[in-house]
Design a protein around this nucleic acid. Sequence first.
DNA 1: CCAAGGCCTGAATG
DNA 2: ACATTCAGGCCTT
Length: 280
Amino acid sequence: MQKKYTINVDISINSGQVFLWRKYQDYWYGVNGQNVLRIDNLGKIKSYQNKSIDFFRNKDNTDQIIKSISKDKVTKNSVKKYFGLRLMDQDPFQCLISFIVSSNSNIPKIKQSLECICARFGDKIKFDNKEFFLFPTPEKLSQASIFEIKKCGVGYRAKFIKEAAKVVVLKKIDFEELRKTNYSEAKKHICKIPGVGNKVADCVLLFSLNKLESFPLDRWMIKILEKYYLDEFKIMTKTITEKQYEILHEKIVKHFGPYAGFAQQFLFKMERENYKKKWL
DNA sequence: CCAAGGCCTGAATG
DNA sequence: ACATTCAGGCCTT
């Protein structure tokens, strides 16, 4: 009998999905929207809001998913090496703003900007005798001045942040609704948000809207595909246009199947570790 | 449909 | 000490 697929919390948190996390002794603490989560090394969660949350997607049949994405040597190796890596189901608004901030940036910088945004616009709370700033509500961010948002070092993205928050407040985008719609429909809607292109949209869909076939293609993933999957995907250009992104995504889903997003996370983790890139 | 350049910041390199 | 390069994705032309 094969060992059931468990959770490796360290690996999961250090995989580029989340930014507002820190470790105190044996627990990871992380901001997730209006909630703060405390996670032990088995993945057991206690939350500030005291409500249960399937943050690690335990309802998935993960054993089957892992089997399904293990189509080739590369994924098989990364699945083995990073055993316990999970996709996390995040607060959608925080996820959206996080990945708008992420564009044209890097992980340490993203983390710093987001922490500043929380401290400046989020509510201060106490949990486990520690202080945290919650992520700001859409209302709060939609009313913030661009000048104030810029103080968090987000530069030209400040107006995207404000506009994105407005879109959410005005219910032009409804996360609950998007969770139920299919991948391409949901993507069409989310790409209308200022500052959201293909890559950011796929991150939001994968990490907070339950779209497991989305496969965010950033510079790293392109590099990875060129390096290990040249025969399969034949990437010809350095800059990926919208059309090419779409075609490439179709090929990817054909190769990895409906849970391609899981494969993306393993490959990303693997290559960033190879290059010893910083996580949090 | 595609190509090129601008937007911002901070770390790394010269 | 200072200047340049680089990383990074979206938007406009």
